[in-house]
């Protein structure tokens, strides 16, 4: 992305400069076999609190530079919250109106933060699930194209390119700083498919033997931000490069929460998708014994207090 940062409002410039270049944390967990080292990108330190800042900044700035929001046109997308927060935060800083279609069971922390940034929320029936919100966003965009520009994080190429150009290179450089080569295994989930596709493509170019494991949640109650995959009826995101996936790792919500508690005890307070990724990474390590596994801690645990996941009954 060629961007003259001086043209951005000061708050937007400050926020965007702080996106990415996140720490790569080594996780020394007892189950790791000898010779396998596990590293994770700590994405909660992004200003919007999650990995979604990366693709959202890129998608939003590309559209902003192209004049998409002239004459008060609004950015529209569906999100369960993390992307919505990034849109709302950066939209507010850029002076772009933001409308998010969000299921009503998104955590209160997410809904209130999006509203705090001034985003307009279209709240859908939680019983009907996330894909209903996605279809509602498409309907709104079609019904009023002058009012809305549908960013569509599921098909927007700047989503995966943010990870191809940014995240993957950071991982390689941070491993090199430790005297290590590129990862030989990558563990990621499928929400929009942006992280897996972007980071997976770049890292496989560097090492064609890279093993890519996709974390798959149980269908109910699910794991926030992760899509079911591989069964009839599962929607495959348009930008997902399925050819990258070597194996799938099913993880239950209970396994994800249990790992989140272990990570919290190590000082890493992360959300359930991060717990699921680390759980799956340990399984990949045990089965395949790769020398260098990399995964992602997508967001922080504070965003889930209202779901009860930290409650000790």
């Amino acid at each position: 992305m060629r961007l003259d940062a001086a043209t951005l409002p000061a708050a937007a410039r400050a926020l965007i400069e702080r996106i990415g270049r996140t720490p790569l944390v080594e996780l020394t967990l007892a189950e790791l076999p000898a010779g396998s080292r596990l590293f994770a990108k700590l994405e909660s330190v992004n200003p919007g609190g999650s990995i979604k800042d990366r693709p959202v900044a890129r998608m939003l700035l590309e559209a902003w530079q192209a004049g998409t929001f002239a004459r008060g046109r609004r950015l529209l997308d569906s999100s369960s919250g993390n992307a919505g927060i990034s849109y709302a935060m950066l939209g507010a800083a850029l002076g772009v109106g933001v409308t998010i279609v969000v299921p009503g069971n998104a955590s209160r922390e997410r809904l209130e933060r999006m509203r705090a940034h001034g985003a307009e929320l279209v709240v859908t029936d939680p019983i009907e699930g996330y894909d209903f919100a996605l279809r509602e966003a498409r309907r709104l965009a079609r019904a009023d194209p002058d009012r809305y520009w549908h960013c569509d994080q599921y098909s927007n190429c700047h989503n995966w390119l943010a990870h191809y150009d940014g995240t993957a290179g950071e991982i390689v450089a941070q491993l090199a700083e430790r005297g290590l080569g590129p990862p030989d295994a990558l563990v990621a989930g499928i929400g929009t498919g942006g992280t897996l596709t972007g980071a997976g493509r770049r890292l496989r170019e560097l090492d064609p033997a890279l093993r890519v494991a996709a974390v798959i949640p149980e269908t109910f109650p699910g794991i926030e931000g992760l899509k079911p995959y591989g069964e009839p009826g599962d929607i495959v995101p348009e930008l997902l490069d399925e050819a990258l996936i070597d194996e799938t790792c099913p993880v239950s919500a209970d396994e994800a929460v249990a790992m989140c508690r272990r990570l919290a005890a190590l000082g890493l307070f992360v959300g359930p998708s991060s717990g699921a990724f680390v759980h799956a990474a340990l399984r990949v390590a045990t089965a395949r014994r790769p020398a260098r596994l990399v995964t992602f801690l997508n967001d922080g645990g504070e965003r889930y207090v209202s779901t009860g996941m930290w409650r000790r009954d």
Binding site: S79, S80, G81, N82, V102, P103, G104, N105, A106, S107, R110, P126, I127, G129, Y130, D131, G191, P217, T219, F220, P221, G222, I223, E224, G225, L226, K227, P228, G233, D234, I235, A253, S306, T307, G308
Partner: peptide
């Protein structure tokens, strides 16, 4: 009685 997952994103 409504059964509502406290998980809004990703699910079908």
């Amino acid at each position: 009685v409504s059964i509502v997952p406290a998980v809004a994103g990703g699910t079908r």
